[in-house]
């Protein structure tokens, strides 16, 4: 229940709409429970219903831009570029991030992480939330989103890269990390 509500809040960005969305999803799920063949997949099935309800009822009303348009912006970026960014992370950034005793960085991350996630383009945001926060596997997330597992994998890579970049820039601006840029490779 809490996970479903949390996901609804993140989708709708509004507590009242989130409650309506959960109620609608639960009602729809209850009436279709006979169609669930494998109860081990209940969690993913429930998230899928929630997302479908959101798309059909809420997103239409708010006239958000189509999800595919966002992905088109990144259509030219291949797997190689994503791996290159991971390879090119400055050692200073890694040392800063991986130091468990750096309380300030922990506080900064705690404060900034959801802001950075919320700022992600929707297709990456939803994928990162389903995998990282809700703990779904790639196959389960693919079923929820109605895309191939390979798409989930590439969205995760891209989403994580954008998050790292946003957090690094924030840390740098706050004077917590060095002035060197987190370079994104251009090919």
């Amino acid at each position: 229940m809490d996970a479903l509500y949390g996901a609804a809040v993140r989708l709708t960005r509004n507590a009242a709409d989130a409650e309506d969305l959960v109620a609608e999803s639960v009602a729809r799920a209850w009436s279709a429970i006979d169609t669930l063949a494998d109860f081990r997949r209940f969690r993913a099935w429930m998230f899928r219903i929630l997302r479908n309800c959101f798309i059909s009822e809420h997103r239409k009303r708010s006239a958000r831009p189509a999800e595919t348009r966002v992905e088109e912006l990144f259509a030219d970026e291949g797997e190689h570029d994503l791996t290159s960014l991971l390879l090119d992370q400055p050692e200073e950034f890694l040392a800063w991030w991986s130091n468990p005793e750096l309380r300030l960085s922990n506080e900064l991350l705690g404060e900034r992480i959801m802001v950075a996630i919320e700022d992600l383009p929707e297709c990456f945001r939803t994928t990162v939330l389903l995998i990282t926060v809700e703990g779904l596997g790639y196959d389960e997330a693919a079923a929820v989103l109605g895309v191939p597992a390979g798409t989930v994998r590439s969205r995760m890579k891209r989403g994580r890269t954008l998050l790292q970049k946003a957090l690094w820039e924030h840390a740098r601006d706050a004077g917590l990390a060095g002035a060197g840029p987190l370079r994104e490779t251009s090919t």
Binding site: D2, G6, T132
Partner: peptide, 18 residues
């Protein structure tokens, strides 16, 4: 780095249904 990012995201996203 990635583990801590995920851990912080999970903590920050935790919410209780009213």
């Amino acid at each position: 780095l990635e583990r801590r990012l995920a851990e912080h995201a999970r903590k920050a996203a935790r919410s209780s249904a009213p």
